[in-house]
Amino acid sequence: MATTISPHRRSLERQRIRQDWLLLAPQLILFIGLTLVPFAVAFPVLFTDRLSFQDTSVDYIGTANFFRIFNDPSVQAEYFPALWRTIRFVALNYVMVFVFGLTLALLIYEVGFTGWFFTIVYLPMMLSGLATGYIAEMLFSRSTGTVNLMLREWFGITSPIDIKLPEGTTVLLPILIGWRYAGFNVAIFLAGLLSIPTDTIEAARVDGASYWQRLWKVYFPQMIPAFIIATIFCLIGSFGVFDELIALNALSSNNEAKLLSVTFFTYAFQSQRLALGLVLTLQTFLPLVAIAVLLQRLQRRLQY
């Protein structure tokens, strides 16, 4: 190959590569500097007893931090309840991706794309996570929640739904988050549906397949890339959920809203256990990131 390329072409080629790197450099330096380098900077901290960001008397303690999750009851007492709450929360969030996103996407696909309806479905995406948490409080707070007050005034139901109960955070919040991200997930699923060649759908229809059969035999198998994308976003987003929980007082009084993200945050920023918090964060999230990377690879292989 190389022998057939003239020296002039080769110098042009080299010039182009140099230009590519110049174009790529500004954002790449920022991205690597703020996404990957931090892990390198934080790596030595994992093996120390560093208490806080301001801590100056830091000692090397080996790999002790890595075993605290297995042999320190005080850590276990905080970590495992939070882990359990988080898993419940993530599982329900994942259900809501389909309850809201897939259902509405199928509806829009069958009825035909109507601008006003998608505008409405996407509207809650304008809310912040914090606002979502406060809206949960506003609607479902025990004595002042509007929905509870409506139930009491109109139907005489006096046992209210309570956002601060264990079921509150892990059941009501996923419903609200499902509602908030409905437009986002509809867009993903609708893009998946629109990528299905219409002749496969027509063929199934001509062969007399019921809607249910069409759904499982024609639509879903061809939507797998969309399912994978939605799964990645839901998995990463709900394990990292934070703002909504802050609105529900997770940092102060509401223990039921203390999911893993809040636990790690308090370890690092409030309760003087920075190094331990860092280790727990990595122990929890690295397997998750690995799964997400595999899913991402799979999705890209299916799509191209």
Binding site: D20, F31, F39, V41, F233, I236, A268, F285, L288, Q296
Partner: peptide, 30 residues
């Protein structure tokens, strides 16, 4: 080119890293 593919994949990593996971190391560095 190979470096283009590598850099593209590096950017895709952003999608799989939870904000709260990057926050503590990032704050330490910043």
């Amino acid at each position: 080119r190979r470096y283009q593919m590598t850099i593209y994949n590096i950017y895709l990593l952003q999608m799989v890293i939870p904000t709260i996971m990057i926050l503590i190391p990032q704050f330490l560095m910043v």
